[in-house]
Design a protein around this nucleic acid. Structure first.
Length: 424
RNA sequence: GGAAAGGUGGCAGAGUGGUUGAAUGCGGCGGUCUCGAAAACCGUUGUUUGCGCAAGCUUACCGGGGGUUCGAAUCCCCCCCUUUCCGCCA
């Protein structure tokens, strides 16, 4: 959520920022609602102050045996007016809140301006030694590989749950588990995160806190009976750990990492990249979340990307880093890097991670603050990034590690986690 | 699923419808004492709205939402949550 005060003091900047994010310019609407709100508050607070003042004198009047009926009648009128203003105020605040909830965060000044994904900027590429985009043999895609070795069974997954619910079997299941454990261990022991194992069903407040609601509500699974949402990412429960809290400056930065399954309805994207793992309703992800002081947040973002890259380099999987342009940035993000891994069979890059700095946009929504040395209270900056999502990673892993005979070598780094070196 | 109890400040725990933001204790912070520390003692200690350069003034907040009243932490209604016991269960 943007700060109205900031909007008021930087109207042109905000206008341009919203345009850059392909959002409508709601500045005038916001300021008008805010003006209206302030006018009502001014008048209302005056009346309330009067009522409080008179009320405090009534006990003395009664003690002195004075007649209170005139005062009571007067205060009754004041009370009615307050009730009316309270009603108006609620209306305006609701209106303002509604506009703000649908107003996206502004991009950081270092983000390239652009309308869509085509204007994203490739920052760097990392390829393992001896890697070539052209293979000497006919590569199988991850679905064929999965079938050949009976490690992935999309048909039976569909039978059990529906399309987009992958079933891992045998060494496939072990490999998936190994990946998750490996990534967690690296982040814990080498990158200094604290491990979190969060609840997977969260309430409405939590979904609002991180901003999945209201804008993305259609994309979320929802358990109506209990008013709970299966999480679309561990970002939701982990960020909400500190919802409505005031953190101590000395505790920052806080760095959490946690694994969770992720559930997404992917409403409206049927038929697009839908085969196998490319777009699924349930997948596994290790997520990094940081709560930091504003001044260090962009350094923390770079560090977070590096933390995700470390995993890919250790696994020797080719990847590239994209800086998203303003038009492709998500609703809450001020800056975001996508990490894409190479799929030889698809002959394209697949998004396996997304690391974002939300600045204080999410913290405002979730009300996460910290107390500075001088006792002043300020919003923290929140960041999160996948470190990483296993589904797309698994595609790249299986395809890049296949041999000409169609067997799959387990990456060296994972072998002590799997207990085997070869599939097939 | 059945029964009961309860939700008050960082925590524990008072609170007769009227100077109650709220006793008291613990914790935190500052100080006295001490070579230093502990103990003891003294002081201090929430968030929030609006106005203001600021000091400050002001509004709201005792799980949430309504209601009664001149006035609600306190009375009434609805909802939510937590704890305990029983049942079921990985």
């Amino acid at each position: 959520m943007l700060d109205v005060k900031f909007i008021r003091e930087n109207t042109e900047l905000v206008r341009q920022g919203l345009l850059n994010k392909n959002s409508k310019d709601a500045v005038d609407e916001i300021l008008a609602a805010d003006d209206e709100r302030k006018t009502i508050i001014l008048k209302n607070d005056e009346l309330k102050a009067k009522r409080n003042q008179v009320s405090s004198q009534i006990p003395q009047m009664k003690k002195a045996g004075q007649d209170t009926s005139v005062v009571f009648a007067e205060m009754k009128r004041v009370g009615d007016e307050i009730a009316m203003l309270d009603g108006q105020l609620r209306g305006v605040e609701e209106k303002l809140e509604n506009i703000l909830r649908y107003t996206p965060n502004l991009a950081h000044s270092s983000v390239p301006v652009g309308r869509s994904a085509e204007q994203n900027v490739e920052v760097r590429q990392w390829l393992p030694e001896g890697f070539s985009f052209k293979s000497d043999f006919k590569v199988l895609d991850h679905i064929e590989l999965g079938k050949k070795h009976s490690i992935l069974d999309f048909e039976r997954g569909t039978k059990i749950s529906g399309s987009g619910f992958p079933l891992y079997m045998g060494k496939g299941a072990t490999l998936e588990r190994a990946l998750i454990n490996y990534m967690l261990d690296i982040h814990l022991h080498e990158h200094n995160y604290l491990e979190i194992f969060p609840p997977i069903l969260v309430n409405r407040e939590s979904m609002k806190g991180t901003g999945q609601i209201p804008k993305m509500e259609d994309d979320m699974y929802f358990i109506e009976k209990d008013d709970l949402f299966p999480v679309p990412t561990a970002e939701v429960p982990i960020t909400n750990i500190h919802r409505d809290e005031i953190l101590a400056e000395k505790d920052l930065p806080i760095r959490y990492v946690g694994y969770s399954p992720c559930f997404r309805r992917e409403a409206g994207s049927y038929g697009k990249d839908s085969k196998g793992f490319l777009r699924v309703h349930q997948f596994n992800k290790v997520e990094m979340v940081k709560f930091v002081k504003p001044e260090g947040s962009y350094d923390e973002l770079e560090a977070m990307v590096k933390d995700a890259e470390d995993i890919l380099q250790a696994l020797k999987i080719p990847y590239r880093i994209l800086m998203l342009c303003t038009g492709d940035l998500s609703f809450s993000a001020a800056k975001c890097y996508d990490i894409e891994t190479w799929s030889p069979a698809e002959n394209k890059w697949l998004e396996a991670s997304s690391c974002s700095n939300f600045e204080n946009f999410q913290a405002r929504r979730a009300n996460i603050r910290f107390r500075k040395e001088d006792k002043k209270i300020e919003y923290v900056h929140t960041l999160n990034g996948s470190g990483l999502a296993t589904s797309r990673l698994m595609v790249s892993l299986l395809e890049n590690y296949q041999t000409p005979e169609g067997k799959i070598i387990v990456p060296k780094a994972l072998q002590k986690y799997t207990g085997f070196e070869l599939i097939g």
